[in-house]
Design a protein around this nucleic acid. Structure first.
Lengths: 257, 257
DNA sequence: GCAAAAATATGATATACATCATGTTTTTAG
DNA sequence: CTAAAAACATGATGTATATCATATTTTTGC
């Protein structure tokens, strides 16, 4: 029955190859059915069972269309988001038309937690790259939750510790690794986080500009370097689908000397 | 009496202008007197008073000479350090002879907390830039402390959140800000964290290589650019002493467009 | 379904920064 | 106190990457 559903969509996709609106419409419908079950996210799994009803009555489900912003850099941090469906980019501005993308958030990811420092404003912007559904938790309620659920606080602390390590690793890479290596690293990250689909390509579709912004470079440089990677047989890229062929060679690009 | 001591050292400094060994020796002696009072650091102020005796019997005072390593990137994370006296750089390797300095730790700073993620190895190296004294707390005891002292856990979580924000800001700057701006930013950071001495220069002395490594650039580029900053009247630098003259102009260099 | 707007492709040119090379000064260690 | 090592200074040269310019293709909105 589930397979039937997939087949159904696949069939429609073939039928209306260019008319993606229908597919999107159908997917959006399916997606609407999803919602927080108050038992599987970072928040719910780490809280005392007695606290779950409180969560249940305080959470809000929200939907965002592709391109819509969840929140913007500099605005007051109103709460924390848990992504149920979709893909969201978390990014920081530089000047008028540049940005560094910090994270491509996927199903299950927490977003907005960077607003929990001393400065209660979001230090980043979050933008939906696909139609997305989130569970929103008000910041005050979240803080109350932390006061009550020590295990959650401890886990969140560890989560931050891991994020900090990752951020500082990327800092070093931005400072010293060449762009080609950073692209290789991003591709491996995407494979790790989003996996491959049945055709063996990365299970996510990003614009080249967004991929470039993740690597901290320009569209043009990114373009030239993925061409090189293609010529060297490490990857293949057509449209928005990317296949990784020589994982070890990519990995080699990410190490020094 | 305290003033007398300072005058004493100042007098000796004049007398033996080049013979710093004596001064250092005397200072080291003075320094040896310092040690944890179990009431002023991040750890002690946030713990329950009942827990302090436990800390007192578990902490270790350690000394490091200039140039000595506290711990090394990749080695097992054995504990957390609190810096009582001295300056310590926290840095990450790249290749044989490059590094990115993440932090110049000063009195009161916590070091080694990056080792508390899932991977229980230090992701960074810590090296003393001056003779330093630290209070060391074993990682297992620290974890037990976290389990007991929820306020400490919460504060540590917030601390990490702030560090993460700072790291991601620097990530963006490494990606998009030009080196001159990053130097300006470092100088302002040094002034904020280490203050000025009675002559108005930054109260810290770093090698140019280390400053360059903090900015994510080479010694040569750093050298040329501080010359520019000097020519433009923003700073003055002689030996290891740096004076900031035009704070607002430096600040302007750190913003886009 | 069509016009407008994004996204993509690609060459030509510019430049910020790294690398190399060499000499001097300062610091360190025995 | 002296030799060796580290830090510092500075020009010459090389290169990775950004910027600009322009044409094509794809996507989006009404």
């Amino acid at each position: 029955m589930f397979l039937g559903k997939i087949w159904n969509i696949y069939f429609l996709k073939l039928l209306f190859k260019q008319q993606n609106w229908l597919i999107n419409y159908l997917c959006a419908m399916k997606v609407t059915a999803y919602s927080c079950d108050v038992q599987s996210c970072f928040l719910c799994t780490l809280c005392l069972p007695e606290w779950l009803p409180a969560i249940n009555s305080n959470k809000q489900n929200r939907q965002y269309k592709k391109g819509e912003q969840l929140f913007e850099e500099g605005s007051e941090a109103s709460g924390i988001y848990f992504l149920y469906k979709g893909v969201v980019k978390v990014h920081k501005r530089w000047g008028e038309d540049k940005q560094l993308i910090l994270h491509f958030a996927k199903q299950g990811d927490m977003i907005g937690y960077r607003g929990l420092g001393n400065d209660r404003r979001y230090p980043v912007t979050a933008t939906a790259l696909e139609n997305s559904i989130v569970c929103f938790v008000d910041i005050r309620f979240f803080e109350a939750t932390l006061q009550v659920n020590h295990q959650l606080t401890y886990s969140l602390m560890q989560f931050y510790a891991n994020e900090l390590q990752a951020a500082e690793l990327r800092m070093r890479n931005l400072a010293h690794m060449e762009v080609k290596g950073r692209i290789a690293e991003m591709l491996l990250m995407l494979q790790k986080n989003f996996g491959k689909n049945n055709e063996g390509s990365l299970n996510i579709s990003l614009s080249r500009q967004d991929m470039a912004s993740y690597c901290g470079t320009t569209y043009e440089t990114f373009f030239r370097l993925i061409n090189e990677l293609t010529r060297e047989g490490m990857i293949q890229i057509s449209g928005k689908s990317i296949k990784i062929y020589l994982e070890d060679k990519l990995l080699a690009l990410t190490t020094s000397k």
